[in-house]
Computed example of a mutant assay.
Amino acid sequence: MIVRTRWTMPHSRDELWPLLCDSAVELTPRCPVFYLGTPRPTECRLPEGPGEVGASRQCVSQQGVVRQRITAWDPPARLAFHMEETDLCFSRFVDRLEDVFELSPEGSSTRITRTTTVSVRSHFAAVLGLPLWVGLKSVHRFVFRNWQRMTAY
């Protein structure tokens, strides 16, 4: 399954790039899927220091942590990573989770495209396809709204 979300922000790629690896979320969840158990992100970070291909990245939620490995590091244009492990509830049925962020200039703004690719174990796919897509899309929008709020100051 592929979930893609595009968002345009009135900032340069250089201003937005740091949010990909060092951002804390303070918004109250407005989306009902967070009340239904979808993990709400609270922070993304590079726990070992500077980013580069092979470095680790973590996304923290109220329910646990997704530990990731960076597979593409091209500031300020592209960041890609895949999940290595997680203690979140979806670990039981997700085989693979990969994310790619692409930042493209659009005049004085930046278009951010986030693409998440998920592979679900076959016996769960039919039941979890739609709820998983809705949950991921909600997380994408939630993060982009938070970045918009953070950069408004």
Results as ranks from 00 to 15, higher is better:
Asp22Gly: 07
Gly135Glu: 04
Arg13Pro: 14
Gln58Val: 10
Lys137Val: 09
Phe93Ser: 05
Gly64Met: 01
Arg141Asp: 15
Met1Lys: 03
Asp14Trp: 12
Ser104Pro: 02
Pro32Lys: 12
Asp14Lys: 14
Ala77Arg: 11
Thr86Trp: 00
Cys44Ser: 08
Val100Cys: 05
Thr5Asn: 10
Glu52Cys: 12
Arg78Gly: 10
Thr113Gln: 09
Met150Ile: 11
Glu102Asn: 00
Met150Val: 12
Thr110Asp: 06
Leu27Ile: 10
Arg149Gly: 06
Glu15Asn: 06
Val134Cys: 10
Gly107Lys: 05
Gln58Asn: 10
Phe34Ala: 02
Thr5Met: 08
Gln58Lys: 06
Cys31His: 15
Ala55Leu: 08
Thr110Ala: 03
Thr86Cys: 01
Ala72Asp: 11
Val143Gly: 04
Arg145Asp: 14
Pro75Gly: 00
Pro41Val: 01
Phe124Pro: 00
Ala77Tyr: 10
Phe81Trp: 02
Trp73Gln: 04
Arg45Tyr: 03
Met1Thr: 05
Pro39Ser: 08
His11Ser: 07
Met9Leu: 15
Val94Phe: 03
Thr5Leu: 02
Glu84Cys: 01
Ala72Trp: 02
Pro105Asn: 09
Trp147Glu: 01
Arg57Val: 01
Thr116Ala: 07
Ser104Met: 12
Phe142Ser: 08
Ala125Asn: 06
Arg45Trp: 08
Ile2Lys: 08
Glu26Gln: 14
Val65Gly: 01
Arg111Asn: 07
Glu98Gly: 02
Leu20Ile: 02
Ile70Met: 00
Ala77Gln: 12
Trp133Glu: 14
Arg4Phe: 00
Cys44Pro: 03
Gly51Ala: 02
Ala24Tyr: 05
Thr38Ala: 14
Arg40Asp: 04
Ile112Trp: 00
Pro47Gln: 06
Glu106Gly: 00
Gln148Glu: 15
Ser109Met: 09
Arg67Lys: 08
Asp14Gly: 13
Ala77Phe: 12
Ala55Pro: 09
Glu48Ile: 06
Gly49Met: 00
Ala80Asp: 11
Arg6Leu: 02
Val94Asp: 02
Ser104Asn: 11
Phe142Leu: 10
Leu136Tyr: 02
Gly51Val: 01
Arg121Phe: 14
Gly135Phe: 04
Gly64Phe: 04
Gly107His: 06
Arg4Asp: 07
His82Leu: 13
Ala152Tyr: 07
Asp95Leu: 15
Val65Glu: 01
Glu84Leu: 04
Gln68Val: 07
Leu97Val: 00
Ala126Gly: 11
Arg111Glu: 14
Glu15Thr: 15
Thr115Pro: 00
Glu26Pro: 04
Asp74Asn: 11
His11Glu: 00
Asn146Met: 13
Val134Gln: 11
Ser23Trp: 00
Cys44Arg: 12
Met150Pro: 06
Trp147His: 13
Leu19Gly: 03
Trp17Glu: 06
Arg96Ile: 10
Phe93Tyr: 15
Ser122Lys: 14
